[in-house]
Amino acid sequence: MPYQIIVCGGIAPDPLQTLEPAMGPAGPALKNEMMLPAVFDPWAAHALYEAAHLARQFPGSSIRVVTLAPKAKLQQVMMTVAQKLPFELIPIDGPGGGFTDAVEVSKVLAQAISAIPGIDMSQFLLFGGWESATRGSGCVIPMVAARLGIEDCFLAVDELKIEDGALVIKERVEGGLLQVSRCSAPPAALAWATGSLPEPPNHPQTGMANMRAMMPALQRAKPAGLTGEGFSVPQATLPAQQRQTQVVKDKPAAEISRELLEWIKG
C-alpha cells in the first residue's frame, strides 16, 4: 500500500554556531539570527530520511515537507536538503527560531496540511521531529495530529516497520526503556527521535528535479501570520559552557576518560 507521508520540519541555526539569546522589540530572539547559517532541523531531518526509506519500500508513496521558516533562509537550506531525496515542499513564510507559540505553530501547520488536495487518511502518515534544535517542547506534532483528527500518536520513535499492513513502532519511553506498539493502519503521527538511518548523500539530479517545483513554491509562500498573542518568553539563557583544550599525543583512552571524569566533577 502506498503512503502519503507529510513531514513537518523547520530550520535551525547550524549546530556548530555559537548562539546568543537577545531581547528584541518583539521579545526574545537569537542575536544575528539572519546571519547564521541554517540547516534543516536535525530531528525533522531524521524523520525525513525515515520517510524516504519507507517510501522506497512502497511504490506510489509520496513525501511532502511542510515548513514554517523565513523563506530566504529556507531556500538556502533547501539547496542542500533537496539533493538528498525527492519531495514536494510546502513552505510557509514565518519565523524560524524557537521563540514562537507551539499552539500557533501547530495551527498553521495543520491548516497548511488540510489545504493539500487529495489527502487520503487511510494512507496518511504525519512525521516530524520529536523535539527540535530550536526548542525542545516536544508538543508540536501531537498538537498537529490532534487538529487533523489523528488519534494514534507516537513520540520519540526510533523505528518503524510495516508488517501485514500494520505499523510496528518502537518508541522511547521513560526509564530508558523501549516500547513496541502495533497500529493496525494509518492515519498515524510519528514524532521521531533519531531513527537509525544515515544522512543520504547529495544527488544533483534529484536536487534539480526538486527545485523546479520548489522555487515557484517558495516564491508563492504565504506569511504565517503568527500573532504571538497571549504568549511570552520571560527569559532565555544558554547552558553554561566551559572549555579547556589539551593537545596530547599517544595518551591511552582510559587515561583520557579518567581525566575527563575528574574535569566534569570539578
Binding site: Q4, A52, A55, R56, P59, G60, S61, S62, I63, R64, L85, P86, F87, E88, G118, P200, H203, P204, Q205, T206, M208, A209, N210, A213
Partner: peptide, 20 residues
Amino acid sequence: MSIETEAGNDVNGVDAKPLD
C-alpha cells in the same frame, strides 16, 4: 526499480545520467 511519487518524483533517487 523506479518509484514515482504523486509529485512526479523518483523516490529511488540514484541516477547518475549526465545532466544537460
